[in-house]
């Protein structure tokens, strides 16, 4: 290999660099893209995601001059054994004001169960203005057999909400996260499909 140019890097060094680059791209894919995506979602409201923790330093000053219509939608994922509904389907609110909405869920089995509610807001642009002070979706909800639970969400819709938004839909999806609290952090195992597999863990 006499034709190596004097200024060039050795083959081994170049190979090592390229391997390092490939490894770097893997790290980028696994450890950089997801958090960047989350930040991106938070900024743009992509996917209608709202914050997973309580908003801080929010002062409730209702803007009486403006009315917003707020709708609630509930879904239960994978036919999980819950009945899950908003106490009211719709309310009229003023931006900046502090409100509370109730959701009712019932465990339809005779087993101890845990559910995680996942919020989503439509239109997505409203997501970052929807500030929750307290929400049952912040943590997994435990249900005794047959238990009926009333679960509150306390929130303020920021008065900076863009003018073109007049209706906000807040959606919660109930995901079954298993029969024990230990499993609460575990995502649902999709393999199990519908309810036939539940209640045995």
């Amino acid at each position: 290999m006499s034709n190596k140019k004097p200024e060039s890097v050795s083959t081994n060094a170049l190979t090592a660099r390229l391997l390092l680059f490939a490894a770097g791209m893997f790290v980028f894919g696994v450890f950089v893209l997801p958090p960047v995506y989350d930040v991106f979602c938070e900024v743009t409201g992509l996917g209608g995601k709202t914050k997973g923790q309580a908003a801080e330093n929010v002062v409730a000053v209702a803007d009486e001059s403006r009315e917003l219509s707020l709708e609630f939608v509930t879904t239960v994922n994978q036919y999980a054994p819950w009945e899950f509904r908003p106490a009211v389907e719709k309310m009229t609110i003023h931006p900046g004001g502090l409100y509370e909405a109730m959701f009712v869920a019932q465990n339809l089995t005779d087993q101890f169960r845990v559910a995680q509610a996942v919020p989503s807001v439509a239109p997505a642009q409203a997501a970052s203005y929807f500030k929750k002070l307290d929400c049952f979706c912040f943590s997994a909800q435990e249900f005794l057999p047959g238990e009926v639970k009333e679960m509150p969400v306390r929130f303020i819709v920021d008065s900076d909400l863009p003018d073109f938004i007049d209706t906000i839909t807040l959606s919660y999806t109930f995901f079954d996260t298993g029969g024990t609290t230990d499993d609460a952090a575990m995502p649902e195992n999709m393999d199990h499909g519908a309810d036939s597999a539940h209640g045995t863990r």
């Binding site: 996917g47 209608g48 939608v73 996942v118 989503s120 439509a122 959606s171 999806t173």
Partner: peptide, 8 residues
Amino acid sequence: AIPGFMNE
């Protein structure tokens, strides 16, 4: 239609 998310 995406599970857990609301599209409009």
